[in-house]
């Protein structure tokens, strides 16, 4: 089966800073892959390159076999991207914002309305869907934003720290939503630094450090290779840091 996402040898430098170095990843339909890394490891840069909003210095990204550099529009139609930097318009209400993006993704009007109603119900947005996005709480904004990424039923969901800065209840909403999308056969690539989330959601985990993938595999494979009892220890070992914070 062709992977939905096939990223090969992605590299990106910002001046002297190497944000990504020869990163290769694949995600298949119905699979959740977690990108784990500390702050500044290059997670956002890699996800931006995969989403087609940042051109890599080297490497290529295929979305369902489509080269995103050659056919960006066709590839982007298959992606739902969410990150802390993808906000919604403050002076539009959540429903209007969803309608706007639905149209940009070419969702047919009747289907769009049905899909928005469906997402509003699934993510329990009824109480705030008519309010301007600028007046929503962080959790409400995050839900509306997740709805925007899910709206056009993309083959690949790219979620950059989707539960970041959310309370437990709001975070749980997002986690369950990701599980539902996986159950519907969508490929999900998401970055996080919350180990529990990765353990609960991911079929495979890629460990990232200083722009390089230091290991990737299923949770069991990572634990076996590292000889550690839990993901946190396996991750720290992989990036060369001991439990007390010292370098290994």
């Amino acid at each position: 089966m062709t992977p939905i996402l096939q990223a090969e040898g992605l590299s990106r430098h910002f001046g002297a800073v190497r944000a990504a170095e020869e990163v290769s990843l694949t995600v298949r339909a119905g699979e959740v892959v977690g990108l784990l890394g500390p702050n500044g490891a290059g997670k956002t840069t890699i996800l931006r390159m995969i989403a087609g909003i940042l051109a890599p210095d080297a490497g290529r990204v295929l979305i369902d076999g489509i080269d995103i550099a050659a056919e960006p529009l066709a590839a982007k139609e298959k992606i739902g991207f969410h990150s802390g930097d993808t906000q919604l318009y403050q002076r539009l209400n959540a429903r209007e914002a969803l309608e706007y993006f639905g149209r940009l993704y070419g969702v047919e009007e009747r289907r769009l309305k049905r899909r928005i109603d469906e997402l509003i119900a699934q993510l329990e947005m009824e109480s705030f869907a008519g309010r301007p996005c600028g007046t929503l709480s962080s959790g409400q904004k995050q839900r509306a934003n997740i709805a925007r990424a899910f709206l056009h039923e993309p083959d690949l969901l790219i979620l950059d720290e989707p539960t970041n800065a959310l309370d437990v209840v709001s975070g749980q909403f997002i986690v369950e939503a990701i599980r539902r999308e996986k159950a519907e056969g969508r490929a999900v690539l998401f970055s996080t630094h919350i180990m529990g989330e990765a353990e609960y959601l991911c079929d495979r985990i890629a460990l990232l450090h200083e722009g390089k993938l230091v290991d990737q595999g299923t949770l069991a494979e990572l634990l076996e290779r590292s000889g550690c009892a839990n993901l946190t220890d396996a991750f720290l070992k992989a990036i060369g840091v001991r439990r007390n914070g010292e370098s290994a």
């Binding site: 087609g52 529009l73 991207f81 802390g84 940009l104």
Partner: peptide, 14 residues
């Protein structure tokens, strides 16, 4: 500033 430019750039628009 409001973080909406990136949202637009990841949509399939030229």
């Amino acid at each position: 500033e409001r973080g909406t430019m990136q949202t637009l750039l990841c949509a399939p628009v030229e």
